[in-house]
Amino acid sequence: MAGTQRTPRSLDYPQPVALLRNKQSETPEPTPGLLPGTGDGKGRPTPKRKESEAANKRPLVPTDRRAAGRDAKSAQREARARQYQAMKAGDERYLPAKDKGPARRYVRDYVDARWNIAEYFLPIALLFFVVMIVTTGRDAVISFVVLAALYVLVLIAVVDAVIMWFGLKKRLRTKFGEIPKGTAFYAVMRAFQLRRSRMPKPVHAKHGVYPE
């Protein structure tokens, strides 16, 4: 009825005392055998973060810089000596990266087997320069002839190198299926070197022994 007051029902909210008791009951009991202040039961306190970081720190620079420098130089000398011996003997394990691989070895063997005009370019060009220096101011005709012959030699050497590369390119595709980048430059530069001064050393002592 409108004039009648309704008694409010008591809400079933947990009382503060009950909540406190529940929290106290949920608190885990200490594991037997572990003492207060011991982190993992090893009988010693857990190290602090600063102490752990300090223990893990290592010096970036060696304490004895002179000794470290001497060791580094000695290691470099040994590496260079090992690499030089590998270039002479053709040991693939210690060759520079630019000379490693079966394709590069095939290129070297092919260029070494061929008679390349470019191989004799440097000594002939040196001879022409000497003649030009001697005849300069004395005989203009001879100087002009020598200079023209030098340009003709350069043209012939370049044409011969191009012919060599086309023949080698066909062989590389047949054998390996693809041609690694920089192979043409590698082959031409080797062709312009004297055979005795080429590194790695030619495998065969004479021309004409082509790789299979």
Score class of each variant (00 low, 15 high):
98 K>N: 13
11 L>R: 07
38 T>H: 03
207 H>S: 09
43 G>V: 00
155 L>R: 11
167 G>H: 03
203 V>H: 15
59 P>G: 09
73 K>Q: 15
212 E>D: 14
114 R>H: 13
156 I>G: 01
111 V>S: 00
144 F>C: 00
187 A>E: 02
90 G>S: 05
90 G>C: 02
134 V>T: 14
63 T>K: 15
21 R>L: 15
11 L>A: 08
72 A>Y: 14
36 P>K: 05
195 R>L: 08
101 G>P: 04
97 A>H: 13
10 S>I: 13
100 K>D: 00
78 E>S: 02
193 Q>A: 04
193 Q>V: 00
176 F>L: 05
120 Y>N: 08
162 V>I: 13
81 A>V: 06
18 A>Y: 03
40 D>Q: 06
15 Q>E: 10
127 L>T: 06
79 A>K: 07
31 T>K: 05
56 N>L: 07
133 I>A: 12
3 G>N: 13
163 I>F: 06
84 Y>T: 10
174 T>N: 12
104 R>H: 07
54 A>C: 04
150 L>R: 07
4 T>V: 15
173 R>H: 15
193 Q>G: 01
27 T>C: 14
89 A>N: 13
156 I>E: 04
95 L>F: 01
65 R>V: 11
174 T>M: 10
119 E>I: 02
189 M>C: 08
111 V>P: 03
187 A>Q: 06
50 K>F: 14
150 L>G: 08
73 K>G: 10
203 V>L: 14
51 E>A: 11
212 E>H: 12
86 A>L: 04
202 P>K: 07
212 E>L: 08
77 R>P: 05
128 F>H: 07
1 M>L: 10
207 H>D: 06
126 L>R: 06
24 Q>E: 14
72 A>G: 04
43 G>S: 03
32 P>S: 09
201 K>I: 05
27 T>P: 12
156 I>V: 06
82 R>E: 08
3 G>Y: 12
154 V>L: 13
200 P>D: 06
109 D>E: 15
80 R>H: 14
8 P>E: 10
92 E>T: 06
180 P>R: 03
42 K>A: 06
35 L>G: 02
158 V>I: 10
66 R>P: 06
58 R>W: 00
109 D>A: 13
172 L>P: 03
32 P>W: 09
54 A>S: 11
177 G>F: 05
22 N>M: 09
112 D>N: 13
91 D>V: 00
198 R>D: 07
200 P>M: 01
65 R>W: 10
15 Q>P: 08
30 P>I: 01
5 Q>D: 13
27 T>H: 15
209 V>M: 08
153 L>H: 03
136 T>G: 12
76 Q>M: 12
180 P>E: 05
210 Y>P: 03
106 Y>M: 05
58 R>G: 04
135 T>H: 14
29 E>P: 12
107 V>L: 06
61 V>G: 04
57 K>C: 01
104 R>E: 02
165 W>D: 03
163 I>E: 03
81 A>W: 09
188 V>K: 04
